[in-house]
Design a binder for these strands. Structure first.
Lengths: 239, 239
DNA sequence: TCAAAAGTGTTATGATTACACCCATGA
DNA sequence: TCATGGGTGTAATCATAACACTTTTGA
């Protein structure tokens, strides 16, 4: 099967061979103003024109699947160098109406303020949706989204991937609210502070918030080097 | 693409259309005499004839992927109605030498004593290997195995899937040794007893071991109904 | 009676939880 | 001065880990 692509160097439309009957779909999570959100695109062409779905596409014949997922994200939304992890393959025989197509689901975590999302050339619209306001999506994309949320809730308890959703500099309350939002639970502020600080994963930046109408909070950043040391010597990230 | 299959009703060889460039491979775990083992097959045909690999095969055109994994397990090893869970898709472009093929990895947990493993018609040999004695496998099957072991170690801490590897009736020491073997750690017998019994997941069968040359241990079974109740109300299975 | 594993008891330590309460800042 | 969130303190409770010890059974 042959498909059209925008060549990333020349910017011209080129034709390339892709794998038949296998696609990639991607759930993109962002965190903004206390809400966990997902990026959806409105299809500009095809049988599902005008409907919302997950960004996705075909895998080139000579390209690995992780590479393909990164490329698709770049093409469809302008996002590059983001945290991306595979969920699993979805392959019910009737999931796609025009033939047998298996899709590999991915999820991405992005720092909202670092990116400006644009609609790629196959999308007519791109928008963030709160996770409890996801519309009815094309094909089995609601199932893929549900699975991705479960996976995120699981993974966030095992490794500090939550930080991928926050700005470089953040306050402890922002971090706590992120965990509350992802896990759908309420936490105790004093206890959360102590617990996260005891882990020694955060670096005190000796800076404070600016222009807030209450006592300014200290800013912290995540220390990836310390995390790697701790992760090797066995380490638990439960909340 | 068309492949040959043994029809499950008539027992005759039939031809059926399968999905092109996508396969399934399965890591089958069993537990015997204190050791965690994996079932491998020696290929009888093809370019990798005589080499060990994971059982696997093609997906029929009208068959879901989970269904395909169950069927393949049945065809290749005689195993039916086993616990089976998808790992993820493996799709490096060079993983398969004769063309671009993506594979979907699965892992199975089976009760060794309940099954008699046989070599299916494409395998010349089938054997259990201890997890620290896995030979060099075909394609990227060592990578798939490594991932499956990581996944098993993770999952076993989140849900009581370990029981799928034990006989219906087991002693607390057997259970503890299973966890020790899977997680690769040593545990304290008195503390393990108390912890697992406090969870209320085990039913005391009021029976004892027979013919052991030491004090006979009580036999227990896993109570799935209680587990489901506990799992709903939030529940932790850490060891 | 001995070995081997079953099974109980005890104590120190640390984590978790649930609060009360004071502090800093802009409106 | 008041609201808002920042930040500290404390005591009760619960979980974990380490290890000493008693019991049962067949060889």
């Amino acid at each position: 099967m042959v498909r059209q692509f925008i060549d990333e160097e020349s910017g011209k439309v080129v034709e390339q061979s892709v794998m038949n009957s296998i696609t990639i779909d991607c759930v993109i999570f962002g965190f903004d103003k206390g809400s966990l959100e997902v990026l959806l695109i409105k299809h500009a062409h095809g049988i599902k024109k005008g409907e919302w779905g997950l960004p996705g596409g075909w895998i080139k014949e000579e390209e690995g699947i992780d590479t393909a997922a990164h490329r698709l994200l770049r093409e469809l939304t302008g996002l590059d160098h983001v945290y991306l992890e595979q969920l699993k393959a979805f392959g019910e025989p009737d999931r796609f109406p025009l033939g047998r197509v298996i899709t590999i689901g991915y999820y991405a975590l992005i720092k909202r303020e670092a990116y400006n999302v644009v609609a790629g050339f196959t999308a007519s619209d791109v928008r963030w949706f709160k996770i409890d306001e996801i519309p009815s999506l094309i094909y089995d994309h609601n199932e893929i989204f549900d699975f991705s949320l479960k996976q995120l809730r699981n993974r966030v308890r095992q490794a500090p991937i939550g930080f991928k959703l926050l700005p470089e500099k953040f306050t402890l309350l922002q971090l706590m609210q992120l965990y509350e939002e992802i896990l759908g639970i309420e936490m105790d502020k004093p206890n959360f502070r102590r617990k996260i600080l005891k882990m020694k994963l955060l670096v005190d930046l000796k800076e404070k918030e600016q222009n807030v109408s209450h006592r300014a909070a200290k800013l912290y950043k995540f220390d990836n080097a310390v995390y790697k040391k701790l992760a090797n010597s066995g380490f638990n990230f439960e909340f």
